[in-house]
Design a protein around this nucleic acid. Sequence first.
DNA 1: AATATAATGACGCTGTGC
DNA 2: GCACAGCGTCATTATATT
Length: 513
Amino acid sequence: MVMKAIQEHGDEDADSILETLLLYNALESSPPELHSSLEQSSPQEQPSPQEQQQIDSDLFSLDYDGSFLDGFSDLDSSNDEGIITSMAIERCGIDSSLVDLTDFISAAQISKAEDAQLPLEEKRTHIRSDYPEKNKRKLCEYSMLKRKRMVGHGNRIIGEDDEAIHLPNPMIGFGTPADLCQIHRSLPEAATGPPYFYYENVALTPKGVWSTISRFLYDVHPEFVDSKYFCAAARKRGYVHNLPIKNRFPLVPLPPKTIFDAFPLTRRWWPTWDERRKLNCLQTSIATAKNTERIMKALKDYDEDEMPPERVRRYVLHECRRWNLVWVGKNKVAPLEPNEVEMLLGFPRDHTRGISRKDRYKSLGNSFQIDTVAYHLSVLKEQFHNGINVLSLFSGIGGAEIALHRLGIPMKNVVSVEISEVSRNVVRCWWEQTNQKGNLYHLADVRELNADRLEHYISSFGGFDLVVGGSPCNNLAGSNRLHRDGLEGKESSLFYDYFRILDLVKGIMARYN
DNA sequence: AATATAATGACGCTGTGC
DNA sequence: GCACAGCGTCATTATATT
């Protein structure tokens, strides 16, 4: 089918080939194919000096070398697609499913397709005649046009958000510690640092959102990762970043990977007909007492080892999945406690202690999964072992800061912007409790962070090494029944401030160097 | 007793995959 | 056609604080 698609479209039109393959795939039901994980062992020396947690190199003596794909960045002939396709088959095996092949080809394509073609502003701008005042997106695009010189017209018309971005399955990004499907990527020139940037948001957005985000963030393709490959709970997120992806390493100790590992006591009460081994996404609100009460009622007539009728099982399982419930007694389920959520997300125990229960769930539900993010940020350790300057936007309860800390990367200066006073207090407390040597500067609103302030920070400590943050997902997230109105929504449009600030930092840093 | 803060419970719909 | 997942919002009620 791959070959057929190539014959149909010729070697050069990679997009059409992918389209065709995806179409074939939609028409056929291809058998599920497991990813082959590499089992080679070559001890990797891990720089872990003054770290309290020693890294057990035997635990992760996997080969991170992505050499099988080393040629990718150097391919430049128009015949690449054929080569890539055959490499894909070679790599994934002749029997592998089309999904695997297309994922592979897609990942390889992205790095190539991105930097070519249109000038940046051309791609990011589709409304250029009117003078926008109303929405942030237009304002941003307008300011970009003003700032950058206009280049000639492109020859390809790019429609409004119609370049659908395909979510990979399995959602492992450029590989997890256990599944090293690593690909060498070449970033578009406009995307390269300094500074490094790392942007995060929910993977399952309304259509077109991720292509817009990607277009603004210098055409870097998002890395989609589900944190279920790092911990016991799912968390499907997209990450747009310009970090290297070679030689990543995970945090130690490794977090529990299954529900039973995380909560051993639940095993005693877990019915055989509940086959869940991972939790669903940890959200900002939990089940009510009424919910769990109804479940208890539905089960009250059945013994522990007795299988309830299918109707009852279906109801109970549906509610358990919907509300992320765990078994805590005979026929009794309960939502997770705040400190249990902290543990699953990789935060120190009682990190959010002292604020209201509701606020704990909310701030945790809005946070990073630390192990996942730290895995991506781990490549900074070698480069910044003497310390790093961080601009942390939408900091929340400090997921990025904690990831860096747990990686053993000293923070020299952290400018942290967070609207919630409660969350700022959490980070401030943590900063003091962990005896951080560096300086923490707190701001409340990203919208007030202008060029003057940035200039001041950059001149005072010599630039930011990393701009990190995840902008609000309120208007993107599936759970929002009322205002899921996309990237232009009230809160989610703050993404454009992330871009605005990042772009300012890039500009100022370029002047200083 | 008035006011501030916290907890409760009900509320669809989109996108994807089989 | 159906199963499933999903960093959420709001009005109302309960509890805490002044």
